[in-house]
Amino acid sequence: MSAAAAVEISSLVKRYDAVTAVDGLSLRVAARTITAVLGPNGAGKTTTIEICEGFRRPDAGTVRVLGLDPWRDGAALRPRVGVMLQEGAGFYPGARPVELLTHLARLHAYPLDVRMLVARLGLDTLGRAPLRRLSGGERQRVALAAALIGRPEVVFLDEATAGLDPQGRRSTWQLLDELRAAGVTVVLTTHLIDEAERLADHVVIVDAGRVLAEGTPQELTSGVSDDVIRFGGPPRLDVGSLRAALPDTAAVREIAPGSYEVTAKVDPRLLATLTSWCAANDILAEGLQVGHRSLEDVYLELIGAEGATR
């Protein structure tokens, strides 16, 4: 909490008619970090980001970006913020990529060198085709470049890597690392767990318009002391019998047909108990793995629990 906040959201509420898209969301983004807002479709990520960008007015709560109110102080804030809309939207259909970027650069006082940016993002191969003829992934890259052209202090990227191939995704990640090193604050929404885990200093898991959990990827995954053991076997094993053989605190689930997960304090004795239960029941446990919970485990647990209570 020592670093300055680039974005501060408290108790944000946004409703569309009967639907509450954002429901009391609070969030703090430290300057010069990468924050990933992670959640399923319809979790309220885009609405939250678009309120930060000044597109929508909150129904309740406060939002400050670089200390300014995006709705009221938009004119002062806009030059300092870079925006990438979802699905690479936001282009003149008849403009060419370099032409669009050159134009957007002219709206800023100290823009990036367009040629450098174009080369850096591999847009020089797109040539003279108008933007409406480009593929989704190509438009995404142009939209990312457009978000950076004005040398902003904060960039909001709404699903920056959706629709990119693995190579494009990795080069985007590298670029975002470089932005952070250069002193830019990056806020990105994603529903890709590995992206959040690989990239973000701070992960915020959002569902139904609220923050379910947040922290560094390490904090999120190590907050729970239990480990997991996964193994494969025939479908529909008697998990009750296995649980009875294990210590009281252990939990056993068949996460998919023929795929099992044991959550427990893992020690050699527990492993021995598990394998002897398998031997006694004439089961060959395949691909047995011991591991810490991944961010994916945490995410699915949180989102799954939410889904069950809805």
Binding site: P79, R80, L107, H108, A109, Y110, R151, E178, A182, G183
Partner: peptide
Amino acid sequence: AGRSPFAPAPGAAPVGLM
């Protein structure tokens, strides 16, 4: 941070030029 081309240097162009 000053070395990177991406180091923040925000600002709007004069409105007449825009």
